[in-house]
Nucleic acid binder design. Structure first.
Length: 203
DNA sequence: ATACCGATTAACT
DNA sequence: GTTAATCGGTATA
Protein backbone atom coordinates (compact mmCIF):
# COMPACT_ATOMS: atom_id res chain seq x y z
CA UNK A 1 0.00 0.00 0.00
CA UNK A 2 1.53 3.29 -1.12
CA UNK A 3 2.11 6.23 1.15
CA UNK A 4 -0.31 9.15 1.35
CA UNK A 5 0.93 12.43 -0.06
CA UNK A 6 2.46 14.54 2.70
CA UNK A 7 1.08 17.68 4.25
CA UNK A 8 3.93 19.63 2.61
CA UNK A 9 2.72 18.59 -0.86
CA UNK A 10 -0.56 20.43 -0.28
CA UNK A 11 0.78 23.34 1.76
CA UNK A 12 2.60 24.94 -1.18
CA UNK A 13 0.99 28.19 -2.29
CA UNK A 14 1.72 27.63 -6.00
CA UNK A 15 -1.63 26.01 -6.78
CA UNK A 16 -0.79 25.65 -10.49
CA UNK A 17 2.19 23.47 -9.61
CA UNK A 18 0.08 21.44 -7.19
CA UNK A 19 -2.51 20.89 -9.95
CA UNK A 20 0.13 19.73 -12.42
CA UNK A 21 1.81 17.44 -9.90
CA UNK A 22 -1.48 15.78 -8.93
CA UNK A 23 -1.51 14.15 -12.38
CA UNK A 24 -0.50 10.51 -12.09
CA UNK A 25 -1.29 10.36 -8.37
CA UNK A 26 -3.86 7.87 -7.08
CA UNK A 27 -7.12 9.13 -5.55
CA UNK A 28 -8.40 6.48 -3.12
CA UNK A 29 -11.59 5.99 -1.08
CA UNK A 30 -12.19 3.28 1.48
CA UNK A 31 -15.66 3.21 3.04
CA UNK A 32 -16.54 0.25 5.28
CA UNK A 33 -13.36 -1.48 4.14
CA UNK A 34 -14.40 -1.31 0.51
CA UNK A 35 -11.62 0.30 -1.46
CA UNK A 36 -11.80 2.03 -4.84
CA UNK A 37 -9.21 4.16 -6.58
CA UNK A 38 -8.22 5.86 -9.81
CA UNK A 39 -5.18 7.54 -11.30
CA UNK A 40 -5.73 11.30 -11.67
CA UNK A 41 -5.45 12.22 -15.35
CA UNK A 42 -6.98 15.72 -15.43
CA UNK A 43 -6.98 18.66 -12.98
CA UNK A 44 -7.69 22.39 -12.86
CA UNK A 45 -6.13 25.02 -10.59
CA UNK A 46 -8.32 27.68 -8.93
CA UNK A 47 -6.17 30.55 -7.75
CA UNK A 48 -8.18 32.07 -4.91
CA UNK A 49 -9.33 35.63 -4.35
CA UNK A 50 -7.75 37.06 -7.53
CA UNK A 51 -9.17 34.34 -9.84
CA UNK A 52 -12.58 35.24 -11.30
CA UNK A 53 -13.29 31.54 -11.87
CA UNK A 54 -12.81 30.64 -8.19
CA UNK A 55 -15.67 30.42 -5.71
CA UNK A 56 -13.39 32.46 -3.43
CA UNK A 57 -12.96 35.30 -5.94
CA UNK A 58 -13.07 38.69 -4.25
CA UNK A 59 -12.55 37.01 -0.85
CA UNK A 60 -16.08 35.60 -0.93
CA UNK A 61 -16.11 33.73 2.35
CA UNK A 62 -19.32 31.73 2.91
CA UNK A 63 -20.34 28.48 4.53
CA UNK A 64 -19.53 26.73 1.25
CA UNK A 65 -16.13 28.33 0.61
CA UNK A 66 -14.93 28.39 4.22
CA UNK A 67 -13.11 25.06 3.82
CA UNK A 68 -10.84 26.58 1.17
CA UNK A 69 -9.59 29.04 3.80
CA UNK A 70 -8.38 26.08 5.82
CA UNK A 71 -4.98 24.47 5.50
CA UNK A 72 -3.90 22.58 2.38
CA UNK A 73 -4.81 18.87 2.45
CA UNK A 74 -8.56 19.22 3.04
CA UNK A 75 -11.30 18.09 0.63
CA UNK A 76 -13.60 20.75 -0.83
CA UNK A 77 -16.68 19.04 -2.27
CA UNK A 78 -19.63 21.04 -3.55
CA UNK A 79 -22.85 20.38 -5.42
CA UNK A 80 -22.97 21.54 -9.04
CA UNK A 81 -26.24 21.94 -10.98
CA UNK A 82 -28.02 20.40 -8.01
CA UNK A 83 -26.88 16.96 -9.15
CA UNK A 84 -23.13 16.51 -9.25
CA UNK A 85 -20.65 16.36 -6.40
CA UNK A 86 -17.36 17.96 -7.50
CA UNK A 87 -14.16 17.08 -5.64
CA UNK A 88 -11.36 19.57 -5.02
CA UNK A 89 -8.15 19.47 -3.03
CA UNK A 90 -7.45 22.52 -0.87
CA UNK A 91 -3.89 23.86 -1.26
CA UNK A 92 -1.73 26.45 0.43
CA UNK A 93 -1.53 27.68 4.03
CA UNK A 94 -4.46 28.76 6.18
CA UNK A 95 -6.40 31.85 5.03
CA UNK A 96 -5.29 31.26 1.43
CA UNK A 97 -8.31 29.81 -0.47
CA UNK A 98 -6.56 27.84 -3.24
CA UNK A 99 -8.01 24.63 -4.68
CA UNK A 100 -7.49 22.03 -7.39
CA UNK A 101 -10.50 20.44 -9.09
CA UNK A 102 -9.99 16.78 -10.01
CA UNK A 103 -11.68 16.44 -13.42
CA UNK A 104 -10.89 12.85 -14.41
CA UNK A 105 -9.46 9.56 -13.15
CA UNK A 106 -8.58 6.26 -14.78
CA UNK A 107 -10.07 3.41 -12.69
CA UNK A 108 -7.28 1.53 -10.87
CA UNK A 109 -8.85 -0.46 -8.01
CA UNK A 110 -12.36 -1.61 -7.12
CA UNK A 111 -13.69 -1.61 -10.66
CA UNK A 112 -16.75 -3.71 -9.80
CA UNK A 113 -17.58 -1.41 -6.86
CA UNK A 114 -17.35 1.65 -9.09
CA UNK A 115 -19.49 0.01 -11.76
CA UNK A 116 -22.06 -0.79 -9.11
CA UNK A 117 -22.13 2.78 -7.76
CA UNK A 118 -22.59 4.15 -11.27
CA UNK A 119 -25.00 1.39 -12.31
CA UNK A 120 -22.86 0.82 -15.38
CA UNK A 121 -21.73 -2.80 -15.53
CA UNK A 122 -18.95 -3.28 -18.04
CA UNK A 123 -17.93 0.40 -18.05
CA UNK A 124 -14.26 1.33 -17.57
CA UNK A 125 -12.96 4.77 -18.60
CA UNK A 126 -16.52 6.14 -18.68
CA UNK A 127 -16.60 5.77 -14.90
CA UNK A 128 -14.10 8.53 -14.31
CA UNK A 129 -13.92 10.75 -17.39
CA UNK A 130 -15.60 13.80 -15.86
CA UNK A 131 -15.65 15.64 -12.53
CA UNK A 132 -19.23 14.70 -11.69
CA UNK A 133 -18.70 11.09 -12.76
CA UNK A 134 -15.55 10.26 -10.81
CA UNK A 135 -17.09 11.33 -7.50
CA UNK A 136 -20.02 9.03 -8.06
CA UNK A 137 -17.68 6.16 -8.96
CA UNK A 138 -15.59 6.70 -5.82
CA UNK A 139 -18.54 7.42 -3.50
CA UNK A 140 -17.42 10.99 -2.73
CA UNK A 141 -20.24 13.35 -1.71
CA UNK A 142 -20.72 16.88 -0.38
CA UNK A 143 -20.88 15.37 3.11
CA UNK A 144 -17.12 14.80 2.75
CA UNK A 145 -16.28 18.48 2.37
CA UNK A 146 -13.86 19.64 5.05
CA UNK A 147 -12.42 16.15 5.49
CA UNK A 148 -8.64 15.81 5.72
CA UNK A 149 -6.80 13.76 3.09
CA UNK A 150 -3.97 13.11 5.53
CA UNK A 151 -4.02 10.56 8.35
CA UNK A 152 -6.96 8.31 9.16
CA UNK A 153 -9.55 9.58 6.68
CA UNK A 154 -11.53 7.42 4.21
CA UNK A 155 -10.47 9.63 1.27
CA UNK A 156 -6.83 10.30 0.38
CA UNK A 157 -4.26 10.63 -2.40
CA UNK A 158 -1.15 8.49 -2.72
CA UNK A 159 1.73 7.97 -5.11
CA UNK A 160 0.62 6.37 -8.36
CA UNK A 161 2.06 6.56 -11.84
CA UNK A 162 5.21 8.65 -12.43
CA UNK A 163 4.82 10.84 -15.51
CA UNK A 164 7.39 12.39 -17.82
CA UNK A 165 7.14 16.11 -18.54
CA UNK A 166 6.22 15.50 -22.20
CA UNK A 167 3.18 13.43 -21.20
CA UNK A 168 1.57 16.48 -19.57
CA UNK A 169 -0.57 18.89 -21.59
CA UNK A 170 -2.16 22.16 -20.46
CA UNK A 171 -4.88 24.51 -21.65
CA UNK A 172 -7.83 26.61 -20.55
CA UNK A 173 -10.33 25.50 -17.93
CA UNK A 174 -13.74 24.07 -18.83
CA UNK A 175 -17.03 25.82 -18.17
CA UNK A 176 -15.67 29.07 -16.76
CA UNK A 177 -16.50 31.57 -19.52
CA UNK A 178 -18.00 33.82 -16.85
CA UNK A 179 -14.45 34.38 -15.55
CA UNK A 180 -13.74 36.70 -18.52
CA UNK A 181 -9.97 37.19 -18.96
CA UNK A 182 -9.18 34.60 -16.29
CA UNK A 183 -10.89 31.98 -18.45
CA UNK A 184 -7.90 32.26 -20.78
CA UNK A 185 -5.34 31.18 -18.18
CA UNK A 186 -3.68 27.77 -18.86
CA UNK A 187 -4.80 26.29 -15.55
CA UNK A 188 -6.09 22.93 -16.82
CA UNK A 189 -3.71 19.97 -16.96
CA UNK A 190 -4.18 16.50 -18.37
CA UNK A 191 -2.25 13.40 -19.37
CA UNK A 192 -1.75 13.69 -23.11
CA UNK A 193 -3.84 11.26 -25.19
CA UNK A 194 -5.19 9.48 -22.11
CA UNK A 195 -8.59 7.80 -22.77
CA UNK A 196 -10.02 8.87 -19.39
CA UNK A 197 -9.63 12.63 -19.96
CA UNK A 198 -13.05 14.32 -19.84
CA UNK A 199 -15.04 15.00 -22.98
CA UNK A 200 -16.98 18.05 -21.85
CA UNK A 201 -18.31 20.56 -24.35
CA UNK A 202 -15.87 23.14 -25.60
CA UNK A 203 -12.73 21.03 -25.59
C1' DA B 1 -39.20 36.06 0.16
C1' DT B 2 -38.07 35.68 -4.59
C1' DA B 3 -35.30 35.08 -8.83
C1' DC B 4 -31.56 33.56 -11.34
C1' DC B 5 -27.79 30.48 -12.37
C1' DG B 6 -23.95 27.08 -12.22
C1' DA B 7 -16.10 24.33 -12.15
C1' DT B 8 -22.19 18.81 -15.54
C1' DT B 9 -24.23 14.87 -17.67
C1' DA B 10 -27.09 11.80 -20.47
C1' DA B 11 -30.47 11.58 -23.66
C1' DC B 12 -32.45 13.52 -27.20
C1' DT B 13 -33.10 15.59 -32.55
C1' DG C 1 -26.45 20.59 -31.80
C1' DT C 2 -30.03 21.03 -28.01
C1' DT C 3 -32.21 20.33 -23.60
C1' DA C 4 -33.95 18.58 -19.11
C1' DA C 5 -32.68 17.32 -14.58
C1' DT C 6 -32.40 19.60 -9.77
C1' DC C 7 -30.97 22.48 -5.65
C1' DG C 8 -27.71 25.37 -2.87
C1' DG C 9 -25.47 29.82 -3.35
C1' DT C 10 -25.84 34.47 -4.18
C1' DA C 11 -27.92 38.87 -5.05
C1' DT C 12 -31.68 41.80 -4.52
C1' DA C 13 -35.61 43.55 -1.68
Amino acid sequence: MAKRLSRSFYLRDDVVTVARELLGKKLVTSFDGRRSAGIIVETEAYAGIIDRASHAYGDRRTRRTEVMYGEGGLAYVYLCYGLFHLFNVVAGPRETPLAVLVRAIAPAEGLALMQSRCQRPGATMELGNGPGKLTRALGIQTAHTGMSLLRGSPVWIEEGLPLAEEEIASGTRVGVAYALEDALLPYRFWVRDHPAVSRAKGL
